[in-house]
Simulated assay, not measured.
Amino acid sequence: MCLGLPMTIVETDGVSALCSFAGEERRVSVMLLDKPPVGAKVLVYLDDAVRLLDDEEARLIAEALRGLQAAMNGNSCDEFFADLIGREPELPDHLR
């Protein structure tokens, strides 16, 4: 399984970018994006930035990843998925 990481661009030369997430830095390709600026949040799969993220979407993805890590460690993950507590998950409109 491949997980996308919400990373922040630290520096870029227009072809690649040094990005950070959760204390990790890695150089990724930004060739699929139109000149993302330093400070932009990007979704990274296999060292390729595939799209820009707004701050809220990046935060939600990061929370979900922390929740997954908590569950894998045998800890409660409810706080990371508070928006799902007490209701059934809903499919996005395009998948209904």
Rank of each mutant, 00 (worst) to 15 (best):
C2S: 13
C2A: 15
L3N: 13
L5F: 08
P6D: 02
P6R: 01
M7D: 00
M7R: 06
T8V: 06
T8P: 00
I9L: 03
E11R: 09
T12Y: 02
D13T: 01
D13L: 00
D13V: 01
G14A: 10
V15Q: 13
V15L: 11
V15R: 14
S16K: 12
A17N: 05
C19S: 06
S20H: 11
S20E: 15
S20C: 08
F21C: 03
F21V: 09
A22P: 02
A22F: 05
A22I: 02
A22M: 07
E25K: 05
E25C: 05
R26E: 07
R26Y: 01
R26S: 04
R27A: 06
R27H: 05
S29F: 14
S29L: 13
S29C: 11
M31H: 09
L32D: 13
L33A: 02
D34K: 07
K35M: 06
V38M: 07
V38D: 12
V38R: 12
V38F: 07
G39F: 03
G39L: 08
A40P: 03
K41R: 14
K41G: 01
K41N: 11
V42Q: 00
V44T: 04
V44D: 02
V44H: 01
V44C: 00
Y45K: 07
Y45F: 15
Y45N: 10
L46R: 12
L46A: 10
L46Y: 12
D47H: 15
D48V: 14
D48M: 11
A49F: 09
A49Q: 08
V50N: 00
V50R: 02
R51A: 02
L53W: 02
L53S: 03
D54E: 09
D55A: 15
D55N: 14
E56L: 08
E56D: 08
A58G: 08
R59Q: 11
I61C: 06
I61K: 09
A62P: 02
E63G: 05
E63V: 01
A64H: 12
L65S: 07
R66D: 12
G67P: 10
G67H: 07
L68N: 05
L68M: 13
Q69G: 05
Q69F: 00
Q69N: 11
A70E: 06
A70W: 02
A71V: 12
N73H: 09
N73G: 14
G74I: 11
G74N: 04
N75L: 15
N75I: 03
C77W: 01
C77P: 00
C77K: 02
C77R: 01
E79A: 09
F80M: 11
F80V: 12
F81K: 04
F81V: 15
F81I: 15
A82E: 14
A82V: 10
D83R: 13
L84G: 10
L84K: 10
I85W: 01
I85G: 00
I85A: 05
I85M: 03
G86N: 08
R87Y: 01
E88V: 10
E88I: 07
E88Q: 13
P89Y: 03
P89W: 06
E90W: 08
L91V: 06
D93N: 12
D93F: 13
D93A: 14
H94A: 14
H94Q: 10
L95H: 14
L95R: 13
